[in-house]
Every structure is written in C-alpha cells, then in structure tokens.
Simulated assay, not measured.
Amino acid sequence: MEKLIENEDYYFEDGLMVLTEAYLKKRGYCCGNGCRHCPYEGEPDERPSKPKS
C-alpha cells in the first residue's frame, strides 16, 4: 500500500482525517460511507465497489 500524503490524499478537520477527492479517485471504488469528497455519483448500486478478494 502506498503511503498517504497529507494535504494531497487527506487533511485533518476537527481532529478527524478527511480523504480528498484525489485520493478517492486513486483508490478506484466507492466504499458507500458517504465520504464528503466522493467522486462517484449515482445510486449506490451504480457506483464502482470494492473488488472482492
């Protein structure tokens, strides 16, 4: 796993880590948790989901 870069992949707000849109795009799928900067639109069933291992 690649090391995350502060202010590029995430930032802190009120003590919580917030993932950026850039990171979420690199990750490649929607986790379904309603992330603030989620780049994936549409109904949850239409979003790319985590690959099954």
Rank of each mutant, 00 (worst) to 15 (best):
G15F: 03
A22H: 11
F12T: 14
K25M: 10
M1C: 11
Y23A: 14
P51T: 03
E2H: 09
D45C: 05
K3Q: 13
C38F: 02
K52Y: 01
L4F: 08
G42A: 11
E2R: 14
I5C: 05
E46G: 00
N33T: 14
G28H: 02
G42D: 11
G32M: 04
P44F: 09
G34F: 01
S49I: 12
C30R: 05
G15S: 10
Y29D: 04
E41L: 10
Y10W: 04
E8T: 13
G15R: 03
V18W: 08
G42Y: 05
E8V: 14
R36S: 13
Y23G: 04
N7W: 02
E21I: 04
S49G: 14
H37R: 11
V18G: 14
D9P: 01
L4A: 11
R47T: 10
A22K: 15
P44H: 10
C30F: 08
M1F: 09
Y23W: 15
K26A: 12
Y10P: 00
R36E: 15
A22Y: 07
P39A: 09
K50T: 09
E43F: 03
N7F: 09
P44C: 10
L16W: 03
G42N: 11
C38Y: 03
N33G: 06
H37W: 01
E13V: 02
R36C: 02
V18S: 13
F12N: 11
S53C: 03
C31D: 15
P51W: 00
L4Y: 06
K26I: 02
F12D: 12
N7T: 13
C38R: 05
D45M: 04
K3V: 09
C35P: 05
L24V: 11
E43N: 08
E2Q: 11
L24H: 12
E46F: 00
I5S: 08
L16G: 05
C31H: 04
D9A: 03
G34Y: 03
E41Y: 08
M1V: 12
E6Q: 14
Y10F: 14
E2Y: 04
E46H: 09
D45K: 12
P48N: 09
R47K: 15
R36A: 15
G32W: 00
P51S: 04
C35L: 05
N33A: 14
C31A: 08
N7M: 07
M1R: 11
T20E: 01
E13W: 02
Y40R: 06
K25D: 01
S53H: 11
E41D: 13
Y29F: 15
G42L: 07
G34R: 07
F12Y: 15
P48E: 08
N33M: 13
R27I: 07
Y10H: 01
L19M: 15
Y11W: 07
M17S: 04
K50I: 08
P44R: 11
K52I: 05
D9K: 01
C38V: 03
E21D: 12
F12G: 02
Y40L: 07
P51G: 05
E13C: 02
G42P: 08
Y40D: 10
P51L: 02
I5N: 12
